[in-house]
């Protein structure tokens, strides 16, 4: 058991293998792991599999709670009754998650849990999962978290916050769930000193300076109140209308529900969907309220920076930069924000 300390505890980097070994006794662990094309979350059995010195994972971790393909229910035509599919859940730990992704999960919580009725599938996975966040010491050039109310040390959504200080980790439990993790592990730690906190603050400050704040976000949001703004046409011109930005986004959560039949039985299945797809809003009558790429791109941006603010009180963008990295025509959401903010 790790004792609770006011300033947090210090774990020597050399003890990371012990920490992971101890955690695996209680939890299934997923953490960033090196793959051919960058890092992605993978099952971790020992600390060598972890790649904690990373920018961010390629895909966001939202799929842990909201998988791209998920059976909701199944049935066979003999009794015509639907039977609920229950996700298999066991105590899980997302280890080394970036603060932006943890914040995004707190937003998904609002959609699937705070917004009644609750989503039972999401809830089962979410309740079984705890999040150990690793603050960013060296953000990537595509990061813009500080512009959208997040930051390299943002704590929201995390149960435990970790900071890498040279050859040590500073760890702090932020929630009862975090305390619970501490009680479940057996590894030697020391109480953090005020000197450690100074070192941490220094690193966080440096990281904050590396993330460029390029625009006054409030000015941008103010402009969005003009739904008919003249900028959409031009901004949407080069968009191909694929779903990359929405599928890579850690906060995008739109889904489709479809039925599949094989002979006499079948299932109702939930899959990710994207507001960038033309059939997303197509009525059975043939009418489509969002007929073109312009309308669909406006929906995506407005949803994040205007509608979600009204509905959930949050900006549904955490500045992770995944949409920027993967867009096939290099549409850069920072540029969109700047162009609209600066439009006179």
């Amino acid at each position: 058991m790790v004792k609770r300390e006011r300033l947090g505890v210090i774990l020597s980097e050399s003890r990371l293998p012990e920490l992971i070994a101890s955690l695996t006794e209680t939890y299934r662990i997923f953490g960033p792991s090196k793959k051919d094309d960058g890092e992605s979350f993978a099952a971790i059995h020992k600390s060598e599999e972890l790649a904690l010195d990373y920018g961010n994972t390629k895909m966001s971790p939202k799929g842990f709670f909201f998988p791209q393909t998920e059976s909701l229910m199944w049935y066979d035509s003999a009794d015509k009754k639907a039977k609920q599919d229950k996700p298999e859940v066991q105590p899980t730990l997302l280890f080394g998650l970036r603060p932006c992704d943890a914040l995004a999960i707190s937003y998904l919580d609002k959609v699937f849990l705070s917004n009644e009725p609750q989503d039972p599938y999401y809830r089962q996975r979410r309740e079984a999962t705890k999040i150990v966040c690793l603050a960013c010491n060296s953000p990537s050039p595509t990061c813009f978290c500080t512009t959208v109310g997040c930051g390299p040390d943002s704590e929201k959504g995390a149960d435990i916050m970790m900071y890498k200080l040279n050859d040590r980790y500073l760890m702090k439990a932020l929630t009862p769930g975090g305390e619970e993790i501490f009680t479940n592990i057996d590894v030697e730690t020391e109480p953090a000193t005020s000197q450690d906190i100074v070192e941490k603050d220094d690193l966080v400050n440096k990281a904050c300076q590396m993330v460029k704040r390029f625009v006054d976000i409030d000015e941008f949001k103010e402009k969005l109140n003009n739904f008919q703004g003249p900028w959409w046409e031009k901004l949407a011109q080069k968009c191909l209308g694929c779903g990359i930005c929405t599928y890579f986004c850690p906060t995008c959560h739109c889904f489709d529900v479809t039925d599949e039949v094989v002979k006499q039985s079948g299932r109702r299945v939930r899959t990710w969907d994207s507001c960038m797809y033309p059939l997303f809003t197509l009525h059975a009558s043939g009418h489509n309220p969002r007929p073109g790429i312009k309308e669909r791109m406006r929906q995506r941006i407005m949803h994040k920076f205007n509608y979600a603010v009204e509905y959930y009180g949050e900006t549904f963008c955490v500045g992770c930069g995944r949409c920027i990295i993967h867009c096939p025509v290099n549409i850069d959401i920072r540029q969109i924000i700047m162009d609209i903010a600066e439009e006179r």
Binding site: M59, G241, G243, S274, L279, P328
Partner: peptide, 24 residues
């Protein structure tokens, strides 16, 4: 594949107004 349809949308040949992949 994550079914983002970027391959289709980046292809000049894929100009169908309604793609078979999404048809209902």
């Amino acid at each position: 594949c994550i079914r983002c349809y970027a391959c289709r949308n980046a292809c000049p040949n894929c100009y169908c107004k309604e793609c078979f992949a999404e048809q209902t």
